[in-house]
Design a protein around this nucleic acid. Structure first.
Lengths: 155, 155
DNA sequence: TATTGTTATACTCTATAACTATA
DNA sequence: TATAGTTATAGAGTATAACAATA
């Protein structure tokens, strides 16, 4: 049982965690008629207020065309509306409907419920240790990127 | 600073971790002409040997139609071939090419490299604590599922 | 009759390029 | 001329249904 073996076990735990969390989220979202991509937009508008599609495209690291499609879907299903921009007649402000706001808040509550479920059985000291370990791994992971083609390392 | 706040910080760490690992993998795979879905098939065949598309569909929790598409792509890009089944003339055995095997092994080595990068700076005791914390969270996460519409709880 | 994999069809997400209306 | 958002087009992933060949 050498170090590399131990490392492998830890990495497998992280991978399984990522997969399970992904599945949990997708299930939760699917029940509300949302996808991962659409909820990303919903989340941004909920947290930062009405925004142009341009701004959303930059925030999610995607193209304006893609945002058009996502907002089309969110609009058709009643989560957002496109409002006129007060000073720029080219732009549109993506704005949450009452329903969109309600669902965003529900998702936030679900987030808290999940957090409680995952950590409440863990003693405070164990939680602190876990947090420290995760912080280390996150630091290492943030320095891994930028392999060959750094697209935009701005901001 | 109550418990719920602490929980939230931990969950945010886990979410960021999942996102970063996802991005890291996607980047790595993209450089080799593979996608997440295709590498799943590659991985299954590499680990379990030649398999029918039926078997692959069940293993990835998808439809036979979807596997047809994924194998089409992997075949067109030289990772796998479709071989005749020795005893069932309806079935095909998805089999790795030399190139497919080589790439699968490279991915496995990259996996180990990533594990080393993430954990080597962590003292043994910290690694143990992290592993214990992750085990707890994984246990909790595995019992969260099955909310309303359990598709197939077999095996 | 049941099973393996296909074609047919459709929807979501993503990407690039060309275009319109406005700045 | 540059910017905001669209249409046009394309490809990957996923899903259901109908169908062929074989069991």
């Amino acid at each position: 049982m050498n170090k590399h073996h131990e490392y492998g076990v830890l990495l497998d735990q992280l991978l399984e965690l990522a997969v399970l969390m992904e599945e949990d989220m997708a299930r939760d979202l699917g029940e509300r008629g949302l996808s991962r991509a659409r909820v990303h937009v919903l989340w941004l508008v909920h947290h930062n207020g009405p925004q142009t599609q341009r701004g959303l495209a930059e925030a999610i690291g995607s193209s304006p065309r893609n945002v058009t499609g996502l907002v089309d879907g969110l609009e058709a299903t009643g989560f957002v509306t496109r409002e006129t921009h007060p000073s720029d007649r080219r732009a549109l402000l993506v704005t949450l409907t009452t329903h969109g706001t309600a669902v965003a808040e529900e998702l936030q509550r679900g987030h808290q419920t999940l957090a409680r479920k995952l950590f409440e059985g863990l003693p405070a000291r164990r939680r602190a240790e876990l947090g420290a370990g995760l912080a280390h791994v996150l630091d290492a992971l943030r320095t891994v990127p930028a392999p060959a083609d750094p697209p935009d390392q701005v901001s």
